[in-house]
Computed example of a mutant assay.
Amino acid sequence: MPDDPLPTHAGPFALGTFRAGRAPFPGLVTGARVRDLSDLVPSVRALVEDWDSRLPRLTALAARTDGTWHDLPDLDVLAPIEPGQILQSGANYRKHVVDLVAAEKESLHGATPEDARADAERMMDERIRSGVPYVFLGSPRAMCGPYDDIVLPALGEQHDWELELALVIGKAGRNIAEADAYDHVAAYTVCNDLTTRDRLYRPDLKAIGTDWFTAKNADTFLPTGPFLVPAAFVGDPGDLRITLRHNGIVRQDESTKDMIFDIPRLIAYVSTTTTLRPGDLLLTGSPAGNGAHWGVFLKPGDLIEAEITGLGQQRNTVRSSQA
């Protein structure tokens, strides 16, 4: 743990993966204390895979003092879960996408700022009414812990941040109705979906277009956690504050209210293609304020501090792969 204030979580407890010495273990977090759950389950993933029956037992366990307990500051905090699929939503915050579309209309089509923004807003309103989400797959190998160093790959220069609310599936389903979507959510966590912008498009394969694998899946490019906070404790996930600071400067500061497609629509959409299973991770998109917007990208020595209401805080130092 870094020498900073303890990460906070909504509700009476949260879950995570920790290390005290060599072997990682699943833990139940209550404030500044962590109960080792390895006497009960091998991993947090195992808890999520039996979520409906485990949640009442975890609630009872949080009020007890038996078992092995650790002080949170004495532990290494790892990514809280090893997921199945990682499904990632792109272009899902209205203001963010309006900014991008308006900038393109100005630079490429000569529109005035006022006309460009008005056109972009009309496009987003229509997308909300009749469009569908844009979702792609990420690699679990990109994940790292909430306090780990972000290691910049040797290729590319425009390394960017994208803070996102992520949900963990706790109940399997296919073709899930929007009205039933929240029944399939076990918990929420924090993800920072980093992207190397100048590696996003392949100049040698213009007909194919984007290269999501190279741009988004470098090792350490998905800091996750610190905790999984059970959905019942989070309140309205459509009204959480997403805040990211880069070297102490606030770069992203937005409510999840600004999502174009809310969580039920995202779950319903992805489940028409793939069966969702317990342990799958679904990222819901990133709001305005990434590095491309500011014209600032990550460099060795930078500090990223990120948080979402009730889910805890991340703190990552950036370093070069050559260090």
Results as ranks from 00 to 15, higher is better:
92 N>F: 12
121 E>L: 14
261 F>S: 08
18 F>G: 03
158 Q>M: 13
165 L>P: 00
74 D>K: 02
43 S>A: 13
151 V>Y: 01
3 D>G: 02
279 G>L: 02
260 I>M: 05
251 R>H: 11
128 I>Y: 08
311 L>E: 08
157 E>S: 15
275 T>N: 08
15 L>I: 09
147 Y>T: 07
16 G>N: 02
49 E>C: 13
223 P>D: 12
199 R>T: 07
269 Y>P: 02
233 F>Y: 13
235 G>M: 05
206 K>Y: 09
233 F>Q: 02
17 T>A: 06
155 L>N: 12
32 A>S: 14
175 N>D: 11
146 P>I: 06
129 R>Y: 06
247 N>F: 02
298 L>P: 04
91 A>K: 11
205 L>R: 15
218 A>Y: 08
124 M>R: 11
148 D>G: 03
242 I>T: 04
69 W>N: 07
181 A>V: 02
235 G>F: 07
255 S>N: 00
133 P>G: 08
280 D>Y: 04
252 Q>L: 09
199 R>K: 10
86 I>L: 10
261 F>V: 11
306 A>S: 14
149 D>S: 14
172 A>F: 10
48 V>L: 12
137 L>A: 11
130 S>V: 15
278 P>D: 07
151 V>A: 01
2 P>G: 00
156 G>V: 09
118 A>H: 11
289 G>Q: 05
58 L>C: 13
159 H>I: 13
195 T>D: 04
310 G>A: 08
288 A>W: 10
236 D>L: 09
228 L>G: 03
39 D>M: 03
160 D>L: 11
28 L>N: 04
261 F>W: 10
151 V>T: 09
188 Y>V: 02
253 D>A: 04
132 V>Q: 09
252 Q>P: 08
226 P>L: 04
60 A>S: 15
105 K>F: 15
149 D>F: 12
234 V>L: 09
123 M>T: 13
149 D>A: 14
295 G>D: 05
14 A>T: 01
271 S>R: 01
14 A>L: 01
139 S>Y: 06
246 H>V: 10
255 S>D: 00
111 A>M: 14
181 A>C: 00
118 A>P: 02
142 A>Y: 05
227 F>I: 07
103 A>Y: 04
242 I>H: 00
121 E>I: 14
295 G>L: 05
44 V>Y: 10
293 H>S: 05
35 R>E: 00
229 V>L: 01
130 S>M: 13
204 D>V: 10
56 P>W: 06
76 D>K: 09
6 L>H: 02
48 V>Q: 06
23 A>T: 15
264 P>W: 11
315 R>K: 10
99 D>K: 14
17 T>G: 00
73 P>Y: 05
105 K>P: 01
100 L>S: 12
286 S>M: 09
126 E>H: 14
188 Y>W: 09
89 S>P: 05
179 A>K: 04
141 R>L: 14
196 T>K: 01
227 F>Q: 03
210 T>D: 07
233 F>R: 01
82 E>R: 12
159 H>P: 06
160 D>M: 11
86 I>D: 00
186 A>E: 03
2 P>N: 00
137 L>V: 12
298 L>W: 05
107 S>P: 03
54 R>N: 12
248 G>P: 07
83 P>R: 03
146 P>S: 05
1 M>D: 00
211 D>I: 11
166 A>V: 14
70 H>T: 08
27 G>M: 03
310 G>Q: 06
180 D>L: 00
139 S>F: 08
165 L>M: 01
72 L>S: 03
140 P>Q: 06
3 D>E: 06
264 P>L: 12
